[in-house]
């Protein structure tokens, strides 16, 4: 680490910031299994999608970590938002995300999802992805190499296994108004179909 630069990932994953986990033994086992089988929705936005084929095929072969691609959102656990999202794409991203079954996680790839990246002054791409959907892991870079993506996966597995951070889907469920309000700000009333999810009575 070069002096003067903070390892933000380290800070975020710091024990102080972690939720105080009260994992029972069974929950621990379930989380361990969960971290070893991540099904990724085969969907790419932006230029970062180019880095995903080598990650998943023989060159980097992420399948050895239990990360597999699947075809439909119904079977997927992980959504990789691999770059800039235009309004039009974001609408599809949100729709795919809402169709996924819990537990579900989002990995955001590239600077564009963090602060707009090189599209910071573009009229139809969003700037901060986590305003609209909860992001569990950011991988920065323009574009990130497959190694970086793999590291993101490993960190995410670690988070899931040890219940280090509150998962995004719980945030989405509990702060649904916040996300919906932000989405409404850019889409107007055109979120179709409008999901009026009723999460009452659901336990974690």
């Amino acid at each position: 680490m070069q002096e003067g630069f903070i390892d933000y990932q380290k800070v975020l994953n710091n024990e102080e910031h972690a939720i105080k986990s009260t994992q029972s033994v069974i929950q621990k086992a379930v989380d361990w299994f969960r971290s070893k089988s991540m099904f990724v929705l085969a969907y790419g936005t932006g230029c970062g999608a180019i880095e995903m084929p080598p990650t998943f095929t023989s060159r980097y072969d992420i399948e050895r970590l239990g990360v597999v691609g699947v075809a439909t959102p119904r079977q997927a656990d992980i959504l990789i938002v691999s770059g800039y999202c235009s309004y039009k794409t974001l609408k599809r991203v949100i729709r795919s995300y809402e169709q996924m079954n819990e537990p579900k996680f989002i990995i955001a790839l590239g600077s564009c999802t963090i602060n707009g990246g090189m599209y910071w002054d573009s009229y139809n791409t969003i700037k901060r992805l986590e305003d609209y959907i909860p992001v569990d892991m950011f991988v920065n870079g323009c574009m990130p190499r497959p190694e970086a993506l793999i590291e993101g996966f490993v960190k995410l597995q670690d988070n899931i296994k040890n219940a280090k951070k509150e998962a995004g889907y719980i945030k989405y469920r509990e702060n649904n108004e916040f996300y919906k309000a932000n989405q409404k700000k850019i889409f107007g009333d055109n979120i179709e179909p409008s999901y009026e999810a009723n999460f009452e009575g659901m336990n974690r």
């Binding site: 003067g4 630069f5 903070i6 933000y8 963090i114 602060n115 707009g116 910071w120 002054d121 573009s122 009229y123 139809n124 969003i126 700037k127 901060r128 305003d131 700000k185 850019i186």
Partner: peptide, 25 residues
């Protein structure tokens, strides 16, 4: 329409999005 030159992209972006603050350091 956004490609017409009287459309002010920067003003539009500032109006519709918040930017992430830089790190303190």
């Amino acid at each position: 329409p956004p490609m017409r030159r009287e459309f002010d992209t920067l003003a539009y972006v500032n109006e519709h999005f918040d930017f992430r603050k830089g790190r303190e350091d």
